[in-house]
């Protein structure tokens, strides 16, 4: 009998040890884990609803993934990369808000619920020593004057409910809808500017296009044209900038980008466009450089 017990205990101990070993092995980071994915899973895609940068298909997320990969390649730690993103785009970019301020509620509320419900459970389970007297409140007589009065009050209550909805509905008809969603365009633009600073003009142009699709805007279109120009696509830049110039023929930036683009597409027209630019905006920061170009 005791042998059987001992054997049983040994088997159980071996099993538990094996299970613990399995757990330990499982908790170590897997060899094939992709560091880019680990970091991007903690970042929220600004253009989508509730998707992480790792999972999202949007161009912003793709650019952010690239940015993470690049920084990891430069030897930055995941925490540094997260900080970099937070500095640029705010706490909103993190999939999980940092544990400070109001976000502490995320932990306080469940803890309170656990404690409160747990205390109530303990109270329910503990045998009650003193029996409370059975309350006599139950079973008011039916049909008395008090009941009549309660009935009239409830009727009035229903009327008030309907009237309140009617009044509120009337007011709401002209109220402004509230709760605008996050502005993904602003984030897209910020990201595109970052890419431009890193001289990655192709990717930046892609993001500007994305932003333009959501919000047609001459300023953004000019930036797109400029990014295209710097990416070496002078023809594309010219096409883009002509759309802006068709709307506002005297846009100095438009003339500037057009002129620069024409230097590679139609060198004959370029000087005239650039001269027009100088005439329209003689104090533009780029003006001295253009004068130098024209003079040369």
């Amino acid at each position: 009998m005791s042998w059987r017990r001992l054997l049983g205990a040994l088997v159980v101990a071996a099993l538990v040890a094996a299970a613990v070993a399995g757990l330990l092995r499982s908790s170590a980071p897997a060899r094939d884990a992709d560091p880019v994915r680990t970091v991007t899973q903690g970042l929220r895609c600004p253009a989508c609803q509730g998707e992480s940068v790792a999972d999202s298909q949007s161009p912003i997320a793709a650019a952010m993934r690239e940015a993470v990969a690049e920084q990891l390649a430069q030897g930055r730690s995941p925490a540094e990369i997260r900080r970099w993103f937070v500095e640029r785009y705010g706490d909103d970019v993190l999939a999980d808000p940092p544990a400070r301020g109001l976000s502490l509620l995320l932990w306080a509320v469940p803890a309170l619920a656990l404690l409160g419900a747990g205390a109530a459970a303990v109270r329910t389970l503990r045998p009650s020593r003193h029996r409370r007297p059975v309350a006599a409140a139950a079973g008011r007589a039916r049909g008395g004057t008090a009941a009549q009065r309660v009935w009239w009050v409830s009727c009035a209550g229903v009327m008030v409910l309907v009237a309140a909805v009617a009044l509120a509905a009337d007011r709401l008809d002209d109220a402004q809808p509230q709760g605008r969603p996050a502005d993904p365009v602003a984030v897209t633009l910020q990201l595109a500017r970052d890419l431009e600073r890193d001289q990655r003009y192709d990717a930046a142009a892609e993001l500007y296009r994305e932003a333009l699709r959501d919000r047609p805007d001459d300023g953004v279109q000019l930036r797109l044209a400029f990014a295209l120009l710097r990416a070496g696509d002078a023809a594309g830049a010219e096409r883009t900038v002509r759309e802006v110039l068709a709307r506002s023929p005297d846009s100095p930036d438009g003339l500037l980008v057009l002129g620069l683009a024409q230097r590679s597409t139609r060198p004959g027209d370029a000087p005239e466009t650039l001269r027009r630019f100088l005439a329209v905006a003689p104090r533009h920061p780029a003006a001295p450089e253009i004068r130098r170009l024209l003079g040369a």
Partner: peptide
């Protein structure tokens, strides 16, 4: 308790914006 977790996780982004002015989100993590 799980219901409280889900409740605060769902409602918190609604509370932070009017109170602190910053948007925040609660992700799967």
């Amino acid at each position: 308790t799980i219901a409280a977790v889900v409740l605060i996780g769902t409602v918190l982004p609604l509370l932070t914006e009017p109170l602190t002015g910053a948007r925040s989100s609660v992700g799967p993590g």
